[in-house]
């Protein structure tokens, strides 16, 4: 979490409900502890000054996130977290102001385009989901070559069914080539409880947890214990 993050507790709650033992890590940390997976939550890291994610990529924790990603660790960036991953060069392209210049806060229909990623592994391609979107800079852009490479390599994770923001090729989420780093604009953590109208986000986060290798079961348990108490 960064100064200005505001979805970290939602993410931690949702992952906790799904059986994980989430731990919040402040952006000045130079270690991820024994983390098996990393989630960069939504919000407005460093106030979104200059551009969303532009300053967050210089936070000390990003060096260890970069190493973790390079070693194959699962990394998920949600909304502002996606913007940070793009600015940090962990994912290609960037996110621009919505085409209609409106802040959009609405449920959005998306379709799973590829299940090569840690977020969608095991989910049938073509599955439709309804997830909340909540962004001003959510229009994904990249050069034409990158866009066709993303599609050809199965790196487009989710596409909007009806493009809300002008994203190139209706892209709602992408992964790196290896599939272990994923960024998406919709908020799966806000669709994990029947009270919130959709459980479709839980399907994604469950897949994310299932795709996460647990390095040290005992340590994981003791951390979970610490957090519960």
């Amino acid at each position: 979490m960064f100064p200005g993050s505001n979805c970290e507790h939602d993410v931690a709650y949702a992952l906790g409900e799904l059986g994980a033992a989430p731990k919040l890590i402040w952006h000045t940390s130079k270690s991820l502890g024994h983390a098996d997976a990393v989630v960069l939550p939504g919000g407005f890291a460093h106030g979104d000054y200059l551009r969303p994610g532009a300053l967050a990529r210089f936070s000390p924790v990003m060096d260890v996130v970069r190493e973790f990603a390079a070693s194959g660790g699962p990394v998920l960036g949600i909304c502002n977290g996606f913007q940070i991953l793009c600015e940090a060069g962990l994912l290609p392209g960037t996110l621009q102001k919505n085409r209609n210049l409106r802040f959009i806060c609405a449920p959005a229909g998306v379709r799973v385009d590829s299940n090569r990623s840690v977020l969608t592994s095991g989910i049938d391609e073509g599955t439709s989901l309804v997830l909340p979107i909540n962004h001003f800079d959510g229009s994904y852009i990249c050069d034409a070559r990158t866009a066709s490479e993303l599609s050809e390599t199965g790196s487009v994770v989710l596409r909007y069914i009806e493009n809300p923001n002008g994203s190139i090729d209706d892209i709602a989420g992408i992964s790196n080539l290896q599939g272990n780093v994923v960024g998406l604009m919709p908020h799966p953590e806000r669709a994990c409880d029947p009270l919130l109208g959709s459980l479709d986000g839980a399907a994604l986060l469950t897949a994310f947890l299932a795709a996460t290798p647990i390095k040290d079961e005992t340590d994981h348990e003791s951390q979970a214990e610490k957090i519960r108490s």
């Binding site: 551009r51 210089f58 793009c86 392209g93 960037t94 852009i141 990249c142």
Partner: peptide, 8 residues
């Protein structure tokens, strides 16, 4: 490095 994003 920071002031401009070369993608856009």
């Amino acid at each position: 490095q920071v002031l401009a994003n070369p993608v856009m």
